[in-house]
Design a protein around this nucleic acid. Structure first.
Lengths: 338, 338
DNA sequence: CTGAAAGCGCTTACAG
DNA sequence: CTGAAAGCGCTTACAG
């Protein structure tokens, strides 16, 4: 970052190359309306090409900063990602600004303004979608964006970092099949999220491959949160022909299923096997410790931070769409069924 | 923040008042060594008095930023506080920079430099201690500091925000006594932390008041983490005369005790009552849901953010040392013992 | 140890 | 729509 800082272009350079005056470049930068379209375009092109970033006085150097944006901060999930990003940022002398945009677009506008004033080096967006105008604005400011755990099809040109959700769903289900389970319940995530659909498809693929017929009643909807796991687990357990194992598409929902099991005087593992998805630290603390599909959340955060910092320095990245491997972690919530 | 921004003093003003040149003030600001002691003192006094904060060009206005410093990001605990701080910061248009300093002092130095470049408005330190030189440096930069959950006696003049740990320990123990328990185990936190000692004293006070003799073997050491809860719980359960209830000084340790109970083929509540401390979201997700002492972590974060922002604006705060009320939340992990 | 001078990157009136 | 001019707050040589 340092060597680069020295040779960083200033608006003086841009102005010279564009054949305009310094104030004109300043106006483009500030999104003023009183600039001729061609002039604006020429200047913007140059800004982009040089990777211009505002620097105060020569002496008052910019502080390195990274924005990490969550839809909400209501899951232990978020902390794992924060940890990964902070880790890499910290080592690189870059501060991590954490924020939850909830769903208000007004706060997004304010954030963009703040981000601009801070001259953030990059943005990491988790799960959520930023609207196209917001993406356009970030592009204008030449602030690179990386998406972690993309909710849907990624915006063109935006690198994404996810996990192999389909393989994870497959592995979890195969684990249960391997233990002799044939009636396996599944608690889904929100259908609008790509990762939910991939996990469900992995579950289905495993059953199909094993020649186990699909039973729609065994697939219950959830939203990744605890309460929905409890509800879905209750429904499954109260079926006339209940499953002998339940695979929940998130650890939190798996804990909800635990409680549904307990309420019925049953025991996890002994009476019914349960598998989760995420491998939050909580999975190890559950009683019994939860068998789950590990998603390397901290590592995803680390990779996202590294990627966005490289982009900020104008370096190329190898691959715009990355999926890190999931990994089945077998603990004590699953047992053989004969 | 806006009205204030306009009348914010510049180094030119300070220089004039101190009867020195602008470069001299600049040197003091940057901690250069080549300034006469009296000059430095006079200038620093003035800087402090005016609440000087660096501002780029008139136009390049500062971005509002807050630093939230954790020793580590390894507990769900941290997320609750982040949430509270982010909430208030966000509403005020202030970004929240989250960081974990682990224990390396080298990273602290780099952070200070970064913080200075960012012109952070304030620092919230959680649990950990900042060394006196660091405090001095922050004072020089005129950056206000607030400590959340103070580890020990607070540095003079630094506001702290904690919880009523003693009352919480008392309430939890009284709850168990009220259910008829007489042999009540206790799993401590790290002895060096103030909050650990307060919780233990609350436990002792309740027993004493109830005329229940203290038994040292019922008090087992822990460090707030899961593994220590499991170990301490195991020790307690294997006693010749085991307790009928265990109060763990953190939720995470309570979950460790859950597992020790399960491993022995016992059932939480039915066979042994368990109480935690914190009321992390996880307490609700445990099976059975955990009876625990609620610490309003998010609220503590919110108050810390509000306090530091007020200090940043030169406003006074009512009370430098605040303890928010804890609250016993009774769920399903405790039952009557006859 | 200190100041006068020069300069930095940027922005806002002010003209045209 | 654009530039020449003035100015901002700050810093770094350069002298003494």
């Amino acid at each position: 970052m340092n060597a680069d800082d020295e040779r960083r272009v200033t608006i003086t350079v841009i102005a010279r190359e564009a054949g305009v005056s310094v104030p004109t470049v300043s106006r483009v930068l500030n999104g003023r309306s009183d600039v001729a379209p061609d002039t604006r375009e020429r200047v913007e092109e140059l800004l982009r090409h040089h990777g211009y970033r505002r620097r105060g006085t020569r002496a008052v150097q910019r502080a390195a900063l990274l924005d990490l944006v969550f839809p909400d901060l209501d899951s232990p999930w978020a902390l794992e990602i924060i940890r990964g990003v902070e880790d890499v940022g910290h080592a690189a002398g870059v501060g991590t600004v954490v924020l939850a945009i909830h769903s208000e677009s007004s706060s997004t506008r304010q954030w963009l303004q703040n981000l601009r004033a801070r001259a953030s080096d990059g943005v990491i967006v988790v799960t959520s979608h930023l609207s196209p105008p917001v993406h356009a604005q970030l592009r204008r400011l030449n602030v690179p964006v990386v998406v972690v755990d993309p909710a849907g099809a990624p915006a063109t040109g935006v690198p994404t970092i996810g996990a192999t959700n389909w393989s994870g769903g497959l592995a979890a289900t195969e684990h249960l099949l391997g233990l002799g389970h044939r009636r396996i319940g599944f608690v889904t995530g929100p259908a609008r999220l790509l990762c939910s659909r991939a996990r469900l498809d992995g579950y289905r693929a495993a059953l199909e491959h094993a020649g186990v017929p699909l039973d729609d009643r065994l697939v219950q909807p959830g939203d990744f949160y605890h309460a929905s796991g409890f509800a879905a687990g209750s429904t499954l357990l109260d079926l006339d022909d209940p499953p002998t194992a339940i695979f929940a598409a998130s650890d939190q929902m798996a804990f909800g299923v635990y409680e549904a099991v307990r309420r019925r005087g049953l025991r996890v593992a002994d009476d019914i096997s349960i598998v989760g998805f995420d491998d939050l630290p909580e999975a190890r603390w559950a009683s019994p410790p939860l068998t789950t599909v590990r998603q390397p959340l901290a590592e995803m955060g680390r990779l996202a931070a590294r990627t966005v910092l490289r982009l900020a320095q104008g370096e190329d990245i190898e691959s715009p769409q990355v999926e890190l491997a999931t990994d089945l972690v077998v603990r004590d919530s699953t047992a053989r069924h004969d």
